[in-house]
Design a protein around this nucleic acid. Sequence first.
DNA 1: ATTATTATGATAATGAATTTCATAATCAGA
DNA 2: TCTGATTATGAAATTCATTATCATAATAAT
Lengths: 149, 149
Amino acid sequence: MKRLLERIDREILASGGKRSRSRAAVIEGFFRARDHVTIEDLTRSVRENAPGIGAVTVYRTLKLLERLGYAKELDFGEGARRYESNLSPHHDHLVCRQCGTVIEFEDRKIENLQDLVTRRHGFHPTAHRLEIYGFCRKCASDNSPERVR
Amino acid sequence: MKRLLERIDREILASGGKRSRSRAAVIEGFFRARDHVTIEDLTRSVRENAPGIGAVTVYRTLKLLERLGYAKELDFGEGARRYESNLSPHHDHLVCRQCGTVIEFEDRKIENLQDLVTRRHGFHPTAHRLEIYGFCRKCASDNSPERVR
DNA sequence: ATTATTATGATAATGAATTTCATAATCAGA
DNA sequence: TCTGATTATGAAATTCATTATCATAATAAT
């Protein structure tokens, strides 16, 4: 974690940016937070250690992390964006509509088939998003007919 | 087309709604428009034949069509939603970041693999979205190194 | 026709994200 | 360590898509 933060600091400097206390607090908060946070979530948790951080700074810092390749924007159609760290390898998401749980999965076969599709259409892919919405195991059983009744 | 519009009218009536001129104009406009329209696009084109239609009515009518199962909301991350008719079978999208062209594709194998993934996690899917972003054949060749130069 | 209900559309409200701008923090060079 | 130049901050204002409000209009049922 320490090494990561130092590396990011160096990259920011190298690209003409500055290391500020607020920015450092947001960056560290982001990597400590659970994945798929909203700006609101993150702002709240960062403020526990560094009160007075403006939400605008959180927005800006996450954009910065995205530009540097450390964060990815997510959109589960909730109206507000979420962010996840880009350290783990690529994956897609199962999103529970009831409890909001997000399960990550990675499926090489699906990725390969996607490549085939794009090639078939002469399309040059740069990114993709695959999200499956529904109910997680727990919520599905909570909702099952014999329970709902 | 006529039969479709009549069928929708009947369903609206059956569900306690009314057939109004504005609403009819929006519905017909929607099915005549190209797919993946934005509200703005559609409002403009509907107004050519029926001036004075409020954008609010377009919003409301598309929500209605979605509820009845005739329209699907899309979100390509552009800030504004798009809608497509839900008459053709399920498909996913290739979205060109340069010219905005949208290519539809359907891949049974991908769908099957998605089912496997959800089952593996005890997840009950209700919907999914798969979008591949990049450059279409034309834009990719426009951008290619030997051309950009 | 009359009445009750639903739809419309102008306007206001909402809410996430971005811009603005004066001030503050940080970096580089002496 | 100071100084000047540059970048970052954060409060407030702005933007933009979408939704809510509400008085009026259109439609359906009686």
